[in-house]
Design a protein around this nucleic acid. Structure first.
Length: 433
DNA sequence: TGAAATGTTGGGGCG
DNA sequence: ACGCCCCAACATTTC
């Protein structure tokens, strides 16, 4: 009997065009598909109804159902990855482990520890590029340094792609190479310490019409002009190669957004200190006001600025916020209230279904002015002007802040002109010295 | 992937 | 006819 190999699912919860899964299935060994619910991550979540856990659970259930159609089933474990792997090694005695690379600092450290353990047991650890078109240092300047400005990065990225459609790995065609056996138990959400809930997640079907018109409609939060594929990119329920192929056919502006995603992934890979430090070191000197009460009002959508409140309420109620409004609310928190971008980043991390460390961190630093290729600090969004431009009929406001004209709706918590000048002054003083 | 302040231009009202 | 003022519209500079 041939030894088994294990395919470890992480941020790639799909059977189609899954690079490492394909390679495992091609290895000639029977493949055990595995997912580990990582207690390091789960225990840190505050909300026992966290919708992202439910999304993963639901997605895994569907994967398992499909695997069972092929006579196999998904192994699911729950624990600290290194400890789980110790058990798996004893239990399954695998010849090798296949997985797709993940570039976040925690994942890198986890994989290093697991790879180390496997190596000590003479088990191969094969990892593959899957969640990006170009990873690590595949896109570098002529000096061999990572790009820190988006536009030249994008130019080089497109040069390397050379207009060619990225190739898929047809893992879905080899599912008969999975290990037979349907005895693996599938845990309920409750077994993992979470509660089940209602509600639909956005579909993973590609909304072609939206992509076609993306450049015209993406900035208007009242209309469905964005694809809402973030959550699927986060958990890998859709293949980036597939999306880039469609982007090449359908819309250049949308392709640009996919490249922004890789830009920030690459920044996080090369400059992991951005996780808790500004990319531009000088910005560490900004004396954030960090007023807790004001932060609370921002979180709850009670600032008295309708567009800000609309965004925060959309986030709180749905786990989603339109991108234009993410920029406005982030600008308001960092500039108008002078609250540390990391507070805002942490709040978004807690609430966004599509939360992704690289993108969230990159965009918050962009908004605060301290990131690579960031908006200059003196670029301060005027919430009223933004509303006129991007929600001219007030439809978005009407949906999320219906009481905005009532006498009991709060007055603006800070005067725009005053806050603007205070921010300019504070940033200028901190950066000059 | 801003906004405000400041500068310039040109048409119209008016003496 | 002309100069002057006003001010909207646009452009440039500044934050």
């Amino acid at each position: 009997m041939k030894k088994k190999v294990i395919f470890w699912f992480r941020r790639d919860l799909r059977l189609e065009d899954n690079t490492a899964l394909y390679r495992a299935l091609k290895s000639g060994h029977p493949v055990v598909p595995l997912f580990i619910f990582d207690t390091h991550i789960l225990d840190a979540l505050e909300d026992r109804r966290d919708q992202r856990v439910r999304f993963i659970h639901q997605t895994l259930a569907e994967l398992d159902r499909r695997l069972r159609q092929h006579g196999s089933s998904l192994q699911i474990r729950h624990g600290k990855p290194v400890e789980v792997w110790r058990e798996l090694i004893n239990e399954l005695d695998p010849a090798a482990v296949f997985t797709n690379r993940d570039y976040e600092p925690y994942a890198r450290q986890r994989d290093e520890a697991v790879a180390d353990l496997l190596q000590k047991n003479d088990i191969y650890f094969y990892d593959y590029k899957d969640q990006a078109i170009f990873e690590k240092d595949e896109v570098l300047t002529q000096q061999g340094t990572p790009y820190t400005v988006y536009t030249p990065y994008r130019r080089r990225w497109e040069e390397l792609l050379a207009g060619k459609a990225p190739q898929s790995s047809p893992s879905e065609k080899l599912l008969d190479k999975l290990i037979p056996g349907q005895e693996a138990a599938f845990p309920a959400l409750e077994d993992l310490g979470f509660r089940d809930d209602q509600g639909d997640f956005p579909a993973e079907e590609l909304p072609e019409e939206i992509i076609r018109e993306y450049h015209q409609k993406r900035d208007y939060p009242a209309i469905p002009g964005t694809t809402r594929l973030g959550i699927h990119l986060r958990f890998g329920t859709v293949s980036i190669r597939h999306l880039v192929r469609r982007a090449l056919e359908l819309n250049d502006t949308w392709l640009s957004e996919l490249i922004w995603r890789e830009f920030f992934m690459m920044i996080l890979w090369h400059f992991p200190h951005v996780v808790d430090q500004p990319f531009r070191e000088k910005y560490a000197a900004i004396p954030w006001r960090n007023n807790e009460e004001e932060f609370q009002r921002w979180c709850e959508g009670q600032t008295g600025y309708p567009i800000v409140d609309a965004g925060m309420r959309e986030l709180n109620q749905t786990g989603f916020m339109h991108n234009r409004v993410r920029m406005i609310t982030a600008s308001f928190l960092t500039k108008h209230l002078l609250i540390d971008w990391r507070w805002g980043e942490a709040y978004f991390a807690k609430k966004l279904l599509d939360y992704d460390l690289a993108a969230n961190n990159g965009n918050w630093q962009w908004a605060a002015g301290c990131g690579c290729d960031a908006a200059p600090y003196f670029r301060i969004f005027n919430p009223y002007t933004q509303t006129e431009k991007f929600d001219p009929q007030g439809k978005y406001l009407a949906r999320w802040v219906p009481e905005r004209d009532h006498p009991d709706y709060p007055k603006p918590m800070v005067d725009h002109k005053f806050a603007r000048e205070r921010a300019l002054d504070t940033y200028k003083k901190a950066l000059d010295s």
